[in-house]
Design a protein around this nucleic acid. Structure first.
Lengths: 199, 199
DNA sequence: AGAGTTACCTAGGAGTCCTAGGCAACTGGT
DNA sequence: ACCAGTTGCCTAGGACTCCTAGGTAACTCT
C-alpha cells in the first residue's frame, strides 16, 4: 500500500485507478463505517491529495456508488456459491446464512448495498442476480404469481430487516442470542412458504 | 415561523428552544431527508446563524438524536392508538399498518428512528413501549419463551425491512403493487404465528 | 530524443461543524 | 422605574469537507 512517494526530490506516482480506489474505499467502509468513506479519507490511504482522486472518480457519490456495485456483486457471488446444488429448505437456509454472514463480516460494504442507486447504475449491477437467486429458492415451494413475488419480498424484507436490527443493537436486550432467533426465524419462514395462505 | 428579526435597527430574538429546534429539524428531515438535517440548514429555517443553535443543542449528533427520540415517541403513540381494543389478527394488522403508515408519511422521522442511540438516550426513549406493544400482540398467539422473543424479532425485522426496501425503491420492479404484497405478507405472518414451528 | 498523454500537484472557493467572546434584549429586585 | 444579572443571538475564525482550475512532473510512443 502507498507506493512510495520518495519524499526527497522528485514525485513518484501512487498508481491510482478507479478499481484500486473503490477497493480501498470498501475496506475503509468495513473498518470505519460507510458514512466515513470520504474523498479525503481515501486520499489519505494512498498518501495523496484529495484533488488527485478526481482524475479517476467523478465525485464522492460516484465513489460510494462504486462501493455499492462492488458489494452487490460480491454478495451475489457468495450467496450464489452457497446456493449451488441445494434446493428447498436447504437452499433457503444456505441463502439466508450466506446473506447474513456477508452482512456481519463486511458491515460497511453491506451498508453500501442499501444505497439507492440511479436506475442506470442499478441496471448493470448484480441486482438482477439477487432477484433470480431468490426466485430460484422459491422454486422448491411451488408458488404461483403473484404469490411468488410476495414471497420474494417477504424473504428479502425479513433478511434485510433482521440483519439491520442485529447490527444496530436492536436485539441486545435479553439473554436470547440473535443467532438462535435467526435459526428459528428461518424455520418459521420455511413453514410459511410451505403453507402459503390462500388469498 | 421565523419570528420577525426586524431587519431595521435593533435585533429581535427568534425564540429558539430545544423543542422548537428539534421540531423544525424533524420537519426538515421529512422534507429533504434525514441526512440533510444539519445545523446550518436548521439555522436557516429560523433565519438565524448556525452558531446560535449551540446555546440550545450541544451538537449535530444531539440534534439528530433528539429527532430520533421524538419520532420514536410519535410512532409509539400512533401504533398504540391503532392497537387500542384489538387483539389477535386484528391487532397484528393494525400494528403493522400504523407502523408502515408512519414510516411512509414521515420518511425523515422514520429514518431517524434507525439511528443507533447511546444506551442512556435509548433508555428514556419510547423503545420500551415498542417492545411492550409488540409483546402485547403476541399474547393472542400464546407463545412461550423463547419463542415469543423470536417472534418479536421476526415481526420487527419484517416490518422494518419491508418499509425500508419499499422506500428505497427495491420493490419497484414488476406490476405487483407493494401494498398488495404487504397485505399478503401480513397474512403469512399471521399464519406463521398461529402455527409456530416446534423447536 | 522529442511530442503527447497521463498522473498528481498547488491554490482556492464554498460549505460544514463548532468554539470563543461580545453586545443587545429581556427579567427580577429594590 | 431603574439597574444588575442572565439569557439569546451575534461576529470572528479554525479545522475539515467536496470540488474546480490550471500547472508541472512522470511516463509512453514514435
Amino acid at each position: 500500500m502507498a507506493l512510495g512517494k520518495e519524499k526527497g526530490y522528485l514525485m513518484a506516482r501512487a498508481g491510482l485507478t478507479p478499481a484500486r480506489i473503490i477497493d480501498a474505499a470498501a475496506d475503509l467502509a468495513d473498518k470505519d463505517g460507510f458514512e466515513s468513506v470520504s474523498m479525503s479519507a481515501v486520499a489519505r490511504l494512498f498518501e495523496v491529495k484529495d484533488a488527485s482522486l478526481y482524475a479517476h472518480v467523478r465525485s464522492l457519490h460516484e465513489l460510494r456508488s462504486g462501493v455499492a456495485v462492488l458489494s452487490l456483486a460480491e454478495l451475489a457471488d457468495q450467496v450464489g456459491a452457497a446456493l449451488a446444488g441445494r434446493a428447498g429448505r436447504d437452499a433457503l437456509i444456505a441463502f439466508a446464512n450466506a446473506y447474513r454472514s456477508y452482512a456481519t463480516s463486511h458491515p460497511g460494504r453491506y451498508a453500501a448495498t442499501q444505497m439507492t442507486l440511479e436506475p442506470e447504475v442499478a441496471e448493470h449491477s448484480a441486482a438482477a442476480r439477487h432477484a433470480a437467486m431468490t426466485r430460484a429458492i422459491l422454486r422448491g415451494y411451488a408458488l404461483n404469481e403473484p404469490d411468488e413475488t410476495d414471497a420474494v419480498r417477504l424473504l428479502h424484507a425479513t433478511f434485510h430487516g433482521f440483519v439491520l436490527l442485529e447490527r444496530g443493537g436492536g436485539f441486545s436486550r435479553g439473554a436470547r442470542s440473535s443467532s438462535a432467533s435467526w435459526d428459528r426465524v428461518l424455520d418459521a419462514l420455511h413453514t410459511t412458504l410451505s403453507n402459503w395462505p390462500p388469498s
